[in-house]
Write a protein that binds this DNA or RNA. Sequence first.
DNA 1: GATGAATGAGCTTTCATTCAT
DNA 2: AATGAATGAAAGCTCATTCAT
Lengths: 197, 197, 197, 197
Amino acid sequence: MARISKEERKNSIISASLQLFSERGFYITTIPDIASKVGMSVGNFYNYFTSKDILAKELLLYIADYLGQEIKKINESNLTTEEKIYEIVSMYFNLAQKKPEMIEYFLRVYLSNREVFKDGCEGMVCVSSFVTEMMIFFDDGVSNGDLHSQDFFSAFGLFMGYLGGMVFLFGEKILPEPLENYKSSISLNIYNALKTR
Amino acid sequence: MARISKEERKNSIISASLQLFSERGFYITTIPDIASKVGMSVGNFYNYFTSKDILAKELLLYIADYLGQEIKKINESNLTTEEKIYEIVSMYFNLAQKKPEMIEYFLRVYLSNREVFKDGCEGMVCVSSFVTEMMIFFDDGVSNGDLHSQDFFSAFGLFMGYLGGMVFLFGEKILPEPLENYKSSISLNIYNALKTR
Amino acid sequence: MARISKEERKNSIISASLQLFSERGFYITTIPDIASKVGMSVGNFYNYFTSKDILAKELLLYIADYLGQEIKKINESNLTTEEKIYEIVSMYFNLAQKKPEMIEYFLRVYLSNREVFKDGCEGMVCVSSFVTEMMIFFDDGVSNGDLHSQDFFSAFGLFMGYLGGMVFLFGEKILPEPLENYKSSISLNIYNALKTR
Amino acid sequence: MARISKEERKNSIISASLQLFSERGFYITTIPDIASKVGMSVGNFYNYFTSKDILAKELLLYIADYLGQEIKKINESNLTTEEKIYEIVSMYFNLAQKKPEMIEYFLRVYLSNREVFKDGCEGMVCVSSFVTEMMIFFDDGVSNGDLHSQDFFSAFGLFMGYLGGMVFLFGEKILPEPLENYKSSISLNIYNALKTR
DNA sequence: GATGAATGAGCTTTCATTCAT
DNA sequence: AATGAATGAAAGCTCATTCAT
């Protein structure tokens, strides 16, 4: 009658470490911190993840998969391109408010600790499930005639850089209004930047 | 007959640490690393900066001032708003190629190591000289009737998030073309996003 | 319908641990290593040996018994003392080539990890079955008038130190020729050292 | 007016670690043990030796050099080969009594922890200053016509294996008499084994 | 007998910072 | 101003052993 399955244990580590890493940073968070948050011994942690770096990489995959699935839903919906942009912005900002650790991990851990992800997550290897869906979104928009054709990364940089920048400002408590209130204007800015001219 | 003034010594620490922090990251870089790159003893380092964190904050001020001055020049020029956008993008990308450590420091050290800048650089305190000039740019554009009026941070997030995102992709060697080639399309995207509707 | 008796299980642990200890060393080899080589769980290992140290001591007894029996056969044969020396050398070198783990365990684990054998294998307690047969060999030789009378340990040190030294050099791949080729000259050296003067 | 030079500090680490390693074994001895025996902080230890393994290798070189020098003196003396054998045995046994840690390190640390010396001390690399002098001893004896010509390692194994074996028995407190008393008979045994036939 | 998750003490090593010189 | 040896707390990780199932 095991209460807690191995899978559940692993998930609780993922959840605890995601929070700690995104709140405090990768180097500030220690394995004892994580273990004690999960309610497990340090030694036992290593039965689930063989190193701190490997945990970091698995977290990245986890988040990229999550975001990829969310965008996939939007891609497969019957919305217009302009509406899809709004939905993506909305999903991203909602996530940033409800589970800030996911977006923060992207912004603060992944984007800045190159050395951690160097081996095993080169290029976009570990975030491909997310990037792929963004590619599909753009390709669809261009095929529809809604978006003007351009280098994917230029459009990607706009979209994700913008959203990331806003969440950063939000996290710094600099924004005068709740993220919610920016959804429309930001979606419109993005649409205006990318739409067919 | 001192060859090297105190000011020059300080500058050489700034220059060396900027490179090391942006290449390797804040936590990976040690004070001995910096001291040895400067050609100075560890003990003497502390005559110039009283802690590693304080060095990090001074670097941030240094970079924000530099960027602020560059944007100020553009603000004070006789260019149209659209041209100014191009000039800012151009300045930013040129810098990312010639002195990548400055932009990388912004992206990788400042944006992600909150704990380091928490005390002393809350909010925008340490980057105000840069943010102020960006505010002037937007205000001017709106006054001119070139840009539509909106929450400053929404516009700021677009501009800086976009540029930061592109430089990140560039640093990851993911961009298929040199940064140079993106200047026009990105400036146009930004202009279309912000211009009067 | 148990396929594997308790005795067989124990033997397979002995065999696996002997190999691992002698190849990698006592401290490098972990109980999980041994268990996985045997194909058994870590927990179950402790049903057979109550600690790592106890396993080490049982291995020592096992090897000493084996060697003791081999020498006993030679002692009980009708060979001359000189021939017996050759047979002992030959047996030892053959073993070092066919089952190197036994000799290596003697040389590398027993001789150097005093702390492990301190309690329970003091003095010659755990190797007495082997030492006893060597004593018999010498006593017989002296009785025969073939060997000159001397302190047993001086003769024992010569014999076993010499053989151990050669096997060490062999294991280090320093010997220019196969062990085989040294049998005669070494037996002769030993005989010349010990024979009646 | 520095009391303790860097060189002296290093020597005190060598001396302390040699004792601890040979008494307790390599894996049982911890860096804190060594540091506290020297009266130094753990961190400072690493200013002198960059790792525990490197310390172990430097100790080996140190001992091999010491032994090499002692044998060199004997080689360069005007003694007969038989007398030289006695001198070597005597030197070795004296050392085993006065500075047992040196011989014990050879026997217990070097001979058994292959993994520690694998990188950097392959073959005889780290003990060559000692082995070389033993080679000279044998070559001289053969040139003189005192020793019969044979594979060097066979003679070396006899000599060093024998001495090592005796010191081992001594260390185990198995020898009925002090080492001193064995010098003559052992020298004679060695001489009889190696002399011209 | 058998399993393997769990424990926790303890290891090697690092590094910001200090301070006697 | 300059040196660099010294400190010591703390990190990541290991592993013999236990125990609920």
